[in-house]
Structure formats: C-alpha cells, structure tokens
Nucleic acid binder design. Sequence first.
RNA 1: GCCGAAGUGGCGGAACUGGUAGACGCGCCGGACUCAAAAUCCGGUUCCCCUCGGGGAGUGUGGGUUCGAUUCCCACCUUCGGCACCA
Length: 814
Amino acid sequence: MEKYDPQTIEAKWQQVWADESSFHVPNPSPEEIAEHRERTYVVEMLPYPSGELHMGHTLNYTIGDVITHVRRRKGMQVLRPMGYDAFGLPAENAAIKEGGNPRTVIERNIASIREQMHRMGWAFDWSRELSTHEPEYYRWTQWLFLRFFERGLAYRKEAPVKWCPNDQTVLANEQVIDGRCERCGAEVEAKNLTQWFFRITDYADELLDEMDLLEQWPERVLTMQRNWIGRSQGARVVFRVEGSGDELPVFTTRPDTLFGATFFVLAPEHPLVAALVAGFEHETAVLDYVRRTAARSEVEREEKEKDGVFTGRYAVNPVNDEAIPIWVADYVLMGYGTGAIMAVPAHDERDHAFAERYGIEIRQVVAGPGRDVAEAGAFVSHTADEVLVNSGQFSDLSSPDGKVAITASLVEQGLGEETIAYRLRDWLLSRQRYWGCPIPIIHCETCGEVPVPDEQLPVVLPEIDDYVPKGRSPLAAAEDWVATTCPKCGGPARRETDTMDTFVDSSWYFIRYTDPHDDRLPFSRELADYWLPVNQYIGGIEHAVLHLLYARFFTKVMNELGLVGFREPFARLFNQGMITASGAKMSKSKGNVVDPLVFVERYGADTVRLYTLSMGPADEDMDWHDTGLEGPWRFLNRLWRIAHEQSVKPVSADPGDGALARRTHRTIAKVTDDIERRFFFHTPIAAVMELVNEIQREPDDPAARFATETAVSLIQPYAPHIAEELWGVLSAGEARLWETAWPEADPALLVVANVEVVLQVNGKLRDRLQVAAGTGEDELLAAALASERVQAHLEGREIRKTIVVPDRLVNIVV
RNA sequence: GCCGAAGUGGCGGAACUGGUAGACGCGCCGGACUCAAAAUCCGGUUCCCCUCGGGGAGUGUGGGUUCGAUUCCCACCUUCGGCACCA
C-alpha cells in the first residue's frame, strides 16, 4: 500500500476531468425539451476575479459541488456553470496603481482564479464559462438596456444623488451603508447630477408580492428586501399655502392625527421653498438655512439636534381650515414622500422635539388610559381603546376608525387620497468610471437621447491611456470615440460617456449560461425556460438588497418583454455563512486573511473541502482554525488505509444483515437526507466518520467491505479525488465513481435488530436494557419491573402510572 | 425604536416529529509502539459529591404545560445581523 499522497492523485483526476470534459452538460434537443426530463440548475454567485481564491469562494463552491455531485449521481441532468463578474473598480484601481490596463489585469486574474478552481477539483461545465467584460457578453447587456430604454424603464434625469469623493463616481442607494461608500468606506456626498436610472420603483409591489413564488429563501433575506422596499400605507393630504393657494401635498401614515397638526415642515431641498419666501422678511434667513444644510454631510445632518427656520408663511389644514406656520427643517427629507410633512408634535417624537425647541403648540388628539402627552411625551397610538379627542366631528372614534373616516372625508373634498409610499428609490445605474459596460446611447442636439441601433452593438469600450477618475467619466477624454453621428438624423452627435454599474452585468448572467455562445440574442427563450428558474442559488448574504433585488427586477422586466417565461430567477436560495479568523472578518488591512491554497498545498484539496464543510452549519458563520484540518486529514488517511485493507476481500461477498450492514444503510439514508432535504453538510461528514470508525473496530465483519465501499461513495461529493482513487482500488481499476449511481438505502435494513431501551423511574434514567427491536409493551414493562436497579428506586412505593414507548423507553411513575 | 436570527463541555458543534443531552471533530490527559521523536493505535475527557457500587446538578434566566422539555407556551436577559430623522 502506498502512502496517501493527495498532490499526486488530485493532479491525476483533475487531468482526467479536464481531458474528458467530465462535467459538460449539453443543451437539450427540442425533443428533449418537450420530454420534460428531470433536470436541475445549480448556480453559485459568480466571483469577482481578484486573482486569489478566498475562503468565501471555497465554501460557496464546495457546497455547490456537493449538491451537484449528489444530484448528478441520482440521475438528474445538472447544469452547473461558472463565470466572472469582471467589470468594476478593483481592476481599474489596480491598473491605475500598476500603470497597466484593466483588461490586462482582469484577464490575468481570471487565468489565475480559473487555475485555482481547477485545483480545488470543482465540477463545473467549463464549456459555458463567461466573463461580463467580454464584448460577446456585454453586447447583450447593452441590448437589454435598450429594451428597458424603449419601455421607459431606463431614463435620465437630474436628481440629488450620492457621490463617493474617493471613487469619484455616483453610487446607487443600495451601495451606501450608513452614509458611507460600500466599496471604500468614504463618507458620501449629496450632489445634483443628471444620471441614468432604472425604474425599479415601478416594480416595488411585484418585488414584494411575488416573494410568494419563491420556493425557499432564507427569511432574513426576504425581511431585508421588505425593509428595503419599505412599503407603507397612508394618505396623501393636500395643504394649501395661505395667500397664494399653492398646493403642498404631504404623505402621512397617520391621517387620524390631522387635527393635531400645529405646524408644517418643508425639506430644505423642496422646490417651492425659494418661491415661498421670495420677497418676504424671512427670505434671507431661510435661504441661509438652505445653504447651510447643503454643506452638511448626511451623517452630520442626522446626528445634530433638530433645527429649522420659520418661513413667515402659513399652510391651511384641510380638516379644520386652521392656518399653521410653515417651517423649513432638514429633518424632513426630499427623498421620501413629498418632501413636506404635517407636524403632529403630540404623536411623533421628532415633531415633538422640534416643537419643544421652538415653543410650538403640542396638541393631543389621541387619548387612552395612561396616555397623556403632558406627562408621557409624544406617543404613537397602538391599541383599540385609544380614541380621537379634540378632533371635531371625528372625536371619540377609535384611532383606526378615525383614519378611515378622516381619509374618506378628504377624498370627498378632493383634498386627499389613500396612497402608498415606498422607501425604495430608482436604481441609479450610471458610473463615472472607465472599466464598465458602455451605455449604448448617443446624445444628439436635435434628436435628444438616441439609442444605438441593435446592429451596431456592441458599443465597444475604447482603449484609453488615462483611467484616473476626475469626476467625469474617463471615456469623455476619448474624443475620437465620443464624436459620432446621430443614427436618426445623421448629424453630429456625442456618445454617452458614463458606464454601467456592474450590478447590471450580473443581473442576467445566470440566463446567459444556458446559451452562452448565442450571437443572435442574449439567450434563447426555449433554453432559458428549460433550465430556469434556478433550482438552487448559492451565495453570500451581502447581496440581499443588491444583486438579489436587481436580478429579481431584471427577470420581471425580461418576462414582460417576452424574453423569458418566468417571473422569479431563483426558486431556492442558500446563503452560506462567513468564514472568520479568530472571530473576525478576514481582511487585508487586519492581516488575518487565511489563504485556502496554502492548505491545499499542505493537505490537498480534499482535506480543505472536507474541513470547510465540517466546521458547522453552512449557513452560519464559522471560525477557521488551522489545527481543525487535522481531523479531516486523519480521517482521509484512515479511509485510505482501510480501503486498501478491505480491497483484498472478495468483491461479491454478501454483506448480510448484521449490525454493520444495517449501520451502513442508515448512514446512506442520513447522508442523503441531510444533504438533500436539510441542507446540512457537516453532519453527513460526521456520519461517514462514524461508519469508518465502526469498520475499524470490526474489520472482519462480513459487511466490512461493503461498508468501506459505501463510505468511499458517500464521501465522493466532498472529497472527489481520494474517493475516485479508492473506488479504483476497491473495484480493481473501474474508476468512474462520479458516474456511479448514488447509493440507495434498503428500507428493510434501516431498522436496527437490537435496541437499547431506557428504564426510567419518575423520568430519571435508572437502567438500560438490550432487547430485540419491536418487543411488545407488556414484555418491556415486565422486563423493566424485573430490573434490580429499577426495583431499588421503587422500594415498595405505589406505582401510579407507567409509560412504555416501544424501542425507546419505559417510565414508571411512583 | 421596528424586524430577523441565535444562546448546549476548554473549543466548533450533534440531538430533525417532546423520549438515553454532549454524536463527530479539535484540544487536553493517560497508555501502547519507539533509543527518542513524528505518525499511528488504545483508553479517558460536562460539573459537583462519593468507600472504586453509585448519588446529585446541568442546554442564557425565571415561570408554565407534560410521566418526561435543548425541543412546546409565557416573561425576561444577552449576543449577532438588517432597517431607521421614512413622516
């Protein structure tokens, strides 16, 4: 027997898989599409090719590998591709630093990460490999953008946007975390800029409601998306400016508190502010305040005490015609609702703080037991016994009834309506950076925004020398490229110089995999509908409100465009946990990054794969310990030795129905069920380890060889190289385990022959009993009563009750 | 504040439908082999008490349901994650 040498055997099998394209899955013929063969589509979130495979990839792709191997061996046709999310800042920044070209950087990185993926032994269909930066791919990203544009779902407008001063580009709302840039952590600034948006807000309701179509998504992701969309039911109420009659609509979720509105607030950015104060005595003070606000960062604006300034003007409350003072204050945000609010200091904490500071009346309009504003401060009504007070004809109504009645009365007068507000903003997709997909639009003085005709796609990203961001797109400097002719009128025109957010690229790649070389369309609908929705999507939680929301939006639009027949891209989603080092997130700045390849060199890919999945439930965070690899390493060595020992026994020996044979069948059942139904990847490893420990204890058991073969077979999805090698050893050279049917448990052998029954007195364990499985209740009880240890605890006390659970326990209550 | 998830040995974790708490692994302790070490193998490893038979406690805390609760119910504490001047 040779020593277990992972480096040699792993290289050997990887070569076979590459030479034979072992994991290639051809697309179905039209007849096969009609046949509805059992097929499944497993996709892991595609990596950003930084050049180095990290722990997140190792875990993500090993989970996918296990699922893929098991399903494949169960006879399913499994599509399982891989690609690269190649556009984006890191490559561009690296190119700026090293003086190279982002394309060179990224293609070098892709070559390197591809190599590392092969080294891990992952079973991808490499014939479908794609990268989002290739013109063959982004041609179709542009094509899709144009379909969105034609439908009015991609549009350009001037709007207040978030600007990252470090990366010198605008960001989508989803890319701003706590007022900081998701990428670099710099505090974002507010700017008014003309930018491209996708009208994702049109799909807010569908994004919420169609969560019902999803088979299995983690609850936390759905919650995060719901929070992000932030749907709230309320009313639009129209106030009028006293004197001018200008309408100032507000959004409120609490129309029942309208009688408590004692002032009115406009956001400093509200378009009517300037006109409202023009020529009035407060004009200078108000404009000063607006200017000061503009200079404040978002974070600053939120952390300071609430302040504001009176405009000198009044708004008329539609329910009682009362004129209330209009203030401008920056705690009201232009980006939500209408940028104006009715302030009800008795029932809103923010309004309360503001009213106290400026001595504005606080008028309680909801009352209930123990609910007094003068004593308790502002409160929000929430129980049915709280009723409206000081509310004219609506007084004494319950709060919910008051909501309905007041809204109805406003609707009647044409001064309000039921409405819904969303927190979700349109997706800002343009970026002022070089390394991205060009937006296929031409600006013409006479024709305006003109789409590049389909037959001229792709608009190829030009080669330029200077990528350094200067606050406008570097593409603007490529004068030869920018200057073009208008496709409509033929006159001189200029190309759009912004590029797309990389999340656009990744919003449809999972469909391109089904038809990766199509040069007529982004993909064929037949193939898309055959493979999708994705049966199992696997990736990190960090994309909960980014990629996962965008891809859902894209799918809905593609569905309405008739490009696909489904509404949701991913039927099932699994979020793997994060692998930490000493409890902390791995990061270059902390210097605690663990490189999986270092351990692949030391122990081999099989040990690293096994350890990665044995650390704990795959959807929870796991802490990496170098010494932990010793467990799987010893296990594989033991398996290696045992397999060689068992290989000398005759292949056809009958395993019989003894304890080891039964245990083997139970292990098959547990491993299969854990992986398929429970999505547990760590417990199957423990189960196979137990089986191997058992073989080691009873190497001469008639079932030992069968048990060994089964252990090798069951561990194959985790440790495919050694399993393949040992399969060859055990079956004298016939090494095709990856094509061998997944073992099936014999139901007749799933039950154990003998069981240990626990004997309890008053619920406390007193003795154990070995009996044949299925022993009757009476017999069990008699045996229990005969036990000396049980009798010692009965001691002549009266037996009040006996509980007998066959094959489990007997409990005697005294 | 709102929403979500989770609290089990020295550590990671297991116990899926209420039925032997601590599987499996790491680490540690002891032993075998060895001149020695590594590797490997065997045994031990929740805590407390005890005469080596055993007894008691124990799954964040306090209650409850039950013959029986890590599992179900109520209240609370802690940790992690998301959202948040969102009207």
